[in-house]
Design a protein around this nucleic acid. Structure first.
Lengths: 227, 227
DNA sequence: CAGTGGTCTAGACCACTCG
DNA sequence: GAGTGGTCTAGACCACTGG
């Protein structure tokens, strides 16, 4: 009866039971430590975890309050595609459809924060699950930041090689819906205009972009996260 | 030069610089504490944070390894729709389009883990940003778990009232793409078949379901998260 | 300027799991 | 069985910020 998880559970219970209402100030760490018979550090750990989950808000001097409108946080796990496919019990394979040097077109340059026309490596890859199209990937790579030797991406997918070999400092990921255009429709073997789920990622190292990738998923794809 | 964030930064640097390669065992907490001149608890905090981010893997007795294929974790912030709209600097409004008691159809019953035909409250809401359709929401509510007095959802949106008034134990959130069917197309004022981004959430308290909600976003919607 | 959370320390015991 | 991470404690100092 003295672990931070016990404290966490009890505080959570009181919030849910509305013993402590939304917006209300709850007792300080010192008081709770005394009440639960634990060290203050233990209470701190429990409350910090609750704050990270968005359920309470903490400010020095002002104390700790139950969040009025808790902003839920969901954590997405983003594995490499091979692991995602194998995790479903399916056989993974991929085909490199295209690989060529090309100057950055305007929309790509803008997203990667570089000049239009900067030399990039353009890859198109089709990922397969049990032999069926799973994801169509269109990728722009900055050759300047890639460690050598760089593979030709026929043996190892760019997706996996990058994750294992090119660290990045910052990046973002965006999800959206799109109507399949001709090339995507052909690759995924669906009718043009089909509604598809899209994942786009940009990553950067210090100052320089690493890659921009757009992954268009086969119909029926769902991205699921616990709340 | 002695905070857990310093240790965190230095370990991260070594991983990125490949001083410690993927899959490799790194020194134990005791050793690192000695090297950095801090207490073991400080090292522990730094390494625990890195493990939560998926960059290292820790096991008792086995030690700590650099993740071979780091499974990136992205944290999504999921605010209520009003906050999302206002956060864009737009004016929020909503219209309750439908509100009626109805038995759970099979797909809904299945997702909520209840019997088909169980009495539920069905709501349809259109959320507006600057007067334009933003999200079309179709919601199934379990009236049994709702605290009284229950509003009629004309003044307060179900979205917001639930977040503030009905705690839940577990739930999940899923994202996908869909082709707008007739009712969604009409509500959002788009052509039927338009590719739209969909968010679906289910939430449960102890044993009982709280709500199932499907939110169809207007075209162009992107869900963005830092990596 | 004083109260609250944020963090650090040194030491200890425990839990898990590899060999 | 022994080594490693997981956690707890008691005490201390610090940083931020509200009144």
């Amino acid at each position: 009866m003295a672990s931070w998880e016990d404290v966490h559970a009890e505080v959570l219970r009181r919030i849910r039971a509305r013993d402590w209402a939304p917006g209300e100030l709850i007792p300080g760490e010192e008081d709770l430590a005394l009440e639960f018979g634990v060290a203050r550090a233990t209470v701190n750990r429990a409350l910090r975890t609750l704050a990270e989950a968005g359920l309470i808000e903490r400010r020095r001097k002002a104390g700790t309050r139950v969040a009025a409108l808790p902003v839920r946080r969901a954590t997405l796990r983003i594995p490499v595609i091979r692991q995602e496919v194998e995790g479903r019990g399916q056989r993974y394979a991929f085909r490199l459809l295209r690989r060529e040097a090309e100057g950055a077109p305007a929309p790509v340059a803008s997203r990667l924060e570089i000049e239009e026309g900067t030399p990039l490596l353009r890859l198109e890859t089709l990922h397969l699950a049990d032999g069926l199209p799973f994801v169509f990937e269109e990728r722009w790579l900055n050759p300047l930041v890639l460690p050598l030797p760089m593979p030709d991406f026929h043996e190892v997918s760019a997706n996996e090689w990058l994750v294992a070999n090119v660290p990045f400092l910052r990046g973002d990921i965006a999800f959206s819906a799109t109507a399949a255009h001709a090339r995507e429709a052909e690759a995924l073997d669906v009718a043009p205009g089909t509604a598809l789920f899209v994942t786009e990622r940009t990553t950067f190292t210090t100052g320089a972009p690493v890659t921009l990738v757009r992954m268009v998923h086969a119909p029926g794809y769902r991205l699921l996260a616990p709340l």
